[in-house]
């Protein structure tokens, strides 16, 4: 592993080691034309580890999967799910797929924005919360859908936004107490 790269972007070495182990476990043949097929799952893992996918992480993935950096960056730019800027500790994602949109996801989004005083795509000043939008997550029966970190909330109304937020604001507070 190129330690320069980790220093350059100031991300913990352990996180790169974890990603390195994961890519190693996939046993990718760098001469196999199908190696690009691994890209999405590696990006998922990396985003899970680092929280986001800055250029240093992208180049690390490119080198270790054996594809040009432009491919990695291109795939990231194509999917809304991936992000190249840090997100909040608590990430609020509002689905904007057709079904959710029709069922009022736009209003739900505005309510989150109003509540947290940040816009879609932004992170709160303390780094605790961020809001983004997702394209259809495939749970149209529950529209409108909001995902907070890994938890899915269905049939969300603007009225529930405060309740949902209360859960996480409290959680943040308890965490802080423990420390």
């Amino acid at each position: 592993m190129d330690s320069n790269k980790t220093l350059e972007i100031g991300l913990p070495k352990e996180q790169f080691e974890e990603l390195d182990r994961y890519i190693g476990s996939l046993k990718i043949d760098k001469e196999d034309e199908r190696r690009t097929g691994y890209l999405i799952q590696v990006l998922h893992k990396a985003q899970h580890i680092f929280g986001y996918l800055p250029v240093g992480v992208q180049k690390f993935i490119a080198e270790n999967v054996g594809v040009p950096h432009s491919d990695v960056s291109g795939v990231i730019s194509f999917y809304n799910y991936f992000t190249t800027v840090p997100r909040g500790k608590t990430r609020i994602s509002v689905c904007m797929g057709t079904a959710c949109f029709v069922k009022g996801a736009g209003k739900v989004l505005s309510e989150f924005e109003r509540y947290l005083k940040i816009k879609n795509g932004e992170v709160s000043e303390d780094g605790k919360f961020s809001i983004d939008i997702l394209r259809c997550v495939g749970a149209c029966g529950l529209a409108p859908v909001v995902i907070v970190n890994d938890k899915v909330y269905g049939n969300v109304t603007t009225k529930q936004v405060g309740d949902i937020m209360a859960l996480y604001i409290n959680e943040e507070a308890t965490h802080a107490d423990k420390k």
């Binding site: 992208q58 594809v67 040009p68 950096h69 432009s70 960056s73 730019s77 194509f78």
Partner: peptide, 28 residues
């Protein structure tokens, strides 16, 4: 097989550009 130029973004905003739309001198 240099792989500098590639599709970036989607829809109307899509372009063919170096990674992260950086200038050419930042690429390989």
């Amino acid at each position: 097989t240099v792989g500098v130029l590639s599709g970036f973004g989607r829809g109307f905003k899509a372009v063919v550009a170096p990674p992260e739309m950086e200038p050419l001198t930042e690429s390989v």
